[in-house]
Design a protein around this nucleic acid. Structure first.
Length: 438
RNA sequence: CGGGGAGUGGCGCAGCCUGGUAGCGCACAUCGUUCGGGACGAUGGGGUCGGAGGUUCAAAUCCUCUCUCCCCGACCA
């Protein structure tokens, strides 16, 4: 992409309303534009990141054996009346009426809809377990939206729903998702820490929030310092394995958000206790037969009995992750994207647009890197060097190629690593070789 | 939902108290000089001051109503 043709309206000054660093940088780099309170448009640069994150989440869900489907944003009130949540949900739910005066709503979550789909299509335990997910926009009419897309009213979420015959099966599924989540966040360069969460009326320990640590996090968190250096389950995962040992390891040490924080338990950790702030990026939840009972989702068990199916739900806030990653990875000059989610892999800065040898060197690299399968943003604008450097640092692409007449006359260009700031002078060919390998 | 604040060119803001018909910086356009870390000069375009009503010879400025947005708190992927 030629930057001269790309819609990327960067701002030199901080918008007054942006209070936290991710919101400021997302506005300043032209990733998003606010439409109304808690509702945003995603401009080309922001959408690229959103799609990258979405794709990582999708791949990891598929890998874990989940099947993707797509449910609508607008749902009928009837199924919410069945579960009893139509009244319970309160003002957070955006309620609308269609032309026939039918009561509808913009979905804040999808337990009802997925249960309706399940009960109409699955009748026997032989079809279980089933893991179904979708990635869809949700709307929750938050009392006070804030912090940009971190707490928007409209947000993109991946939600998975599981169906099992019995508790043992549901627990296996829960563990599977637990591990899938660790892997998913790790792929984005994040260490998300599972913390015990409120499990509601069901009780037990089958609800965990996944939080990434960041100074600007909304909740206060406490955990054992060793959790911060646990190995992440990365390669060679076999989803047929029993993951109980991994789950036990991660849940064995103290980790809690302020709501679940237990002073007595925590004080036992003494100097091993880490107190920090965190951003919730995922939540997994076992809720048993809550919806299957109220909505009549029964299956035949091996004994021929009709039993309510055991369910769980598993969410990841995809749009929130965009902001979360920035909170976890930035410096005073701007964003530092992990390679896996960067909007482009490489930025080329042509310091002397209009200079023939500079232009041809950059053009040549642009096409050859593109042919090597890399996404390149080429700053071909007629701007001063300082503007180009500042913009490129702001948008945080992992690699910058800097080409100016000074180096070109000696046959070299610079390769800069955004994260470390390291710059190397190399020939265009060696830059190409190095980057083609990432 | 309780408490506070703000709406003035695309962005950031001043003007409002003490009414007299809108200004600054950035951005934008043209020209010139510059050109490896957000240049300089000149010229120029763009707003009727969130909306409605009122007071007045005259309202961005005073009064009333209303809409929107932001911040703190309680709630939440």
């Amino acid at each position: 992409m030629y930057l001269s043709k790309f819609l990327m309206p960067t701002l030199k000054e901080n918008p007054a309303e942006a209070q936290i660093v991710s919101h400021r940088y997302m506005m300043r780099s032209g990733m998003i534009r606010q439409s109304s309170a808690g509702i945003y448009s995603w401009l080309p640069l922001g959408l690229r990141v959103l799609k990258k994150i979405e794709q990582i989440v999708r791949e990891e869900q598929n890998f874990a054996g989940c099947q993707e489907l797509l449910m609508p944003t607008i749902q009928p009130a009837t199924i919410w009346r069945e579960s009893g949540r139509y009244e319970d949900y309160g003002k957070e739910m955006l309620r609308i009426t269609d032309r026939h005066e039918r009561e509808m709503l913009y979905g804040p979550t999808n337990e009802e809809l997925i249960t309706e789909i399940f009960r109409g299509s699955v009748r026997t335990y032989k079809d279980l377990p089933k893991l179904l997910f979708h990635i869809q926009w949700k709307f929750r009419d938050e009392v006070r939206p804030r912090f940009g897309v971190m707490r928007g009213r409209e947000f993109l979420m991946k939600d998975t729903y599981s169906f099992d015959l019995d508790f043992e099966g549901a627990k296996r599924t829960y563990n599977k998702m637990f591990v899938a989540y660790l892997r998913t966040f790790a792929r984005m360069g994040l260490r998300a820490i599972p913390m015990a969460a409120d499990s509601g009326p069901i009780g037990g320990d089958m609800s965990h929030e996944f939080l990434i640590l960041a100074d600007t996090g909304e909740s206060e968190v406490f955990c054992h310092k060793d959790i911060l250096s646990f190995d992440l389950p990365k390669d060679n995962i076999d989803y047929n394995e029993d993951f109980q040992p991994i789950v036990d390891k991660w849940t064995g040490l103290y980790a809690a958000t302020d709501e679940k924080h237990n002073l007595n338990q925590a004080s036992l950790l003494a100097e091993d206790l880490v107190s920090a702030r965190g951003i919730e990026v995922g939540h997994i939840f076992y809720f048993g037969t809550k919806y299957s009972k109220s909505m009549n989702a029964f299956i035949s068990s091996p004994s021929g009995q009709e039993v309510p199916v055991e369910m769980g739900s598993y969410g990841i806030g995809i749009s929130r992750l965009v902001a979360g990653i920035i909170e976890a990875s930035h410096d005073d000059d701007g964003i530092i994207w992990p390679e896996s989610v960067a909007p482009f892999d490489i930025g080329i800065i042509n310091l002397s647009s209009g200079n023939e040898s500079c232009d041809s060197t950059c053009e040549d690299l642009y096409f050859r890197l593109g042919n090597a399968g890399l996404n390149v943003l080429y700053d071909d604008r007629d701007e001063r060097a300082g503007v180009k450097f500042a913009n490129m640092d702001l948008i945080g692409l992992p690699w910058q190629i800097i080409a100016g007449t000074r180096g070109i006359k000696n046959g070299v260009i610079e390769l800069k690593n955004r994260a470390t700031g390291e710059k190397d002078e190399m020939t265009p060919n060696s830059v190409l070789n190095k980057l083609a390998r990432i």
